[in-house]
């Protein structure tokens, strides 16, 4: 498509959309520096940040969120990559059925998946005498992460030349080496993006955790949820501002990494 310079109207339109997306976040960040604890501006202060770091409940919930996201995305990546390779070797109807079943957690509404897992865990809990908590949340997060990994690995797998694996075997690799050095290497971009998407979905999840957390476990979303039910503490603004900062830093790092990878690819050509 031809790249003409955008008109002023177009630029204003894009700017308005960006203002719409960032205005609420900006307000939250500004309010995080407010000395008073209502909307009225009472002067600059960092006191909410101090309170945030002393808030063991919120910090604990943040730690839970990170631990669950790391473990769930790692487990889902292993399970999902293996599954994608396996499913890819099926043919015809079987493969279509397996892929469709795998997609169910993505297609079905979060809340339905949440309540269905809650039914399962409370049923199993009665039989095996356990209560919902860390492990049920972890399992549930793996449930919605695996399909994401499968979806990301599958296209790579389709594009891969199957004779590469045979070539590696002919050239003296054993099966494990051929698998690791050729197959996994070829699939790597899909595996990494599947893992990253899983990680972000897990970080952001509220609904599934809400239904499978049990009485004692909280992640950041569910903790904020219970805070919002009571009086809203301004520490939440400070938390949002810090999360926003962290996201910006991660995004910039990813961008720098991608630019470098592009440059390297360009040199190879």
């Amino acid at each position: 498509m031809q790249k003409k310079k955008l008109s002023v109207v177009s630029k204003i339109y894009i700017a308005l959309i960006l203002i719409f997306l960032y205005a609420p976040i900006a307000v939250m960040i500004i309010m995080s520096f407010n000395k008073g604890n209502t909307m009225a501006w009472k002067g600059f202060s960092l006191k909410w940040y101090g309170e945030l770091f002393q808030n063991n409940v919120l910090m604990g919930a943040l730690a839970n969120t990170l631990i669950i996201a790391v473990l769930a995305s790692l487990l889902a990546t292993v399970l999902g990559t293996a599954a994608a390779i396996g499913i890819n070797n099926f043919r015809g109807k079987t493969r279509a059925v397996l892929q469709n079943v795998s997609n169910i957690p993505i297609i079905s509404p979060d809340i339905v998946m949440g309540v269905s897992l809650m039914l399962l865990f409370s049923f199993l809990g009665v039989i095996f005498h356990f209560e919902m908590g860390f492990f049920t949340v972890l399992l549930s997060h793996v449930c919605f992460c695996v399909p994401l990994v499968v979806l990301n690995v599958m296209p790579r797998l389709r594009r891969m030349d199957p004779s590469l694996y045979d070539a590696a075997l002919d050239l003296g690799c054993n099966q494990w080496q051929a698998f690791y050095k050729v197959v996994i290497h070829e699939l790597m971009p899909g595996i990494v993006s599947g893992m990253l998407i899983s990680f972000t979905y897990s970080l952001d999840d509220f609904v599934i955790t809400h239904f499978t957390q049990g009485a004692k476990f909280n992640n950041l979303s569910t903790e904020i949820y219970s805070l919002l039910r009571r009086k809203i503490p301004p520490t939440i603004n400070a938390l949002s501002a810090l999360l926003f900062l962290a996201i910006i830093i991660i995004m910039v790092l990813i961008n720098v990494y991608e630019r470098r990878a592009e440059k390297r690819a360009a040199k190879l050509k």
Partner: peptide, 25 residues
């Protein structure tokens, strides 16, 4: 690489965590 076995853990997983919960609903 040619093996279908790699998908067995996930097939069991889908059975337990996708199909059974829906049936339970």
């Amino acid at each position: 690489m040619k093996s279908k076995k790699l998908s067995i853990p996930y097939i069991i997983w889908m059975l337990v965590f996708t199909m059974i919960p829906i049936v339970m609903i």
